[in-house]
């Protein structure tokens, strides 16, 4: 299971990175989301996969999964939502203002 998860995470990271490197601003935002999935899965996997019950205390259950990565991921999901929304609006405004979604056109002006 760990191996399969690792491969899945690798695919998510590779696809996310490739999108992130794109010149198209929409693809950059999409890539960011894929990277977020990969990161969250990675955090979860590093906490150990599928051992014990969900960390909600129940009488008689002794072994639980590690709640710490879950708390981290929960935070990460919500923050990433905020960031994605911000990026989206930024990209949207960029397209509106410059009539271009090509990041290569957005370079600064040389100082000379």
């Amino acid at each position: 299971m760990e191996l399969l998860t690792a491969i899945g995470i690798g695919v998510l990271f590779a696809a996310g990175t490739y999108l992130l490197l794109s010149r198209n601003v929409v693809r950059v935002v999409l890539g960011n989301s894929l990277l977020a999935y990969g990161t969250n899965l990675m955090l979860l996997a590093s906490g150990g996969l599928g051992r014990g019950a969900a960390p909600v205390l129940v009488e008689g259950v002794e072994v639980y999964t590690d709640p710490v990565p879950q708390a981290l991921i929960l935070t990460a999901i919500v923050i990433n939502f905020g960031v994605t929304a911000f990026l989206l609006v930024l990209a949207y405004r960029m397209v509106q203002e410059h009539r271009s979604e090509d990041l290569a056109h957005l370079r600064g002006v040389d100082d000379e």
Binding site: E2, A6, G10, V11, F13, A14, T17, A45, S46
Partner: peptide
């Protein structure tokens, strides 16, 4: 591809 490979490797290392 490098980033993906390192991420997979990292996951396995962590596990």
């Amino acid at each position: 591809v490098a980033v993906g490979a390192v991420a997979a490797l990292y996951t396995l290392l962590a596990a």
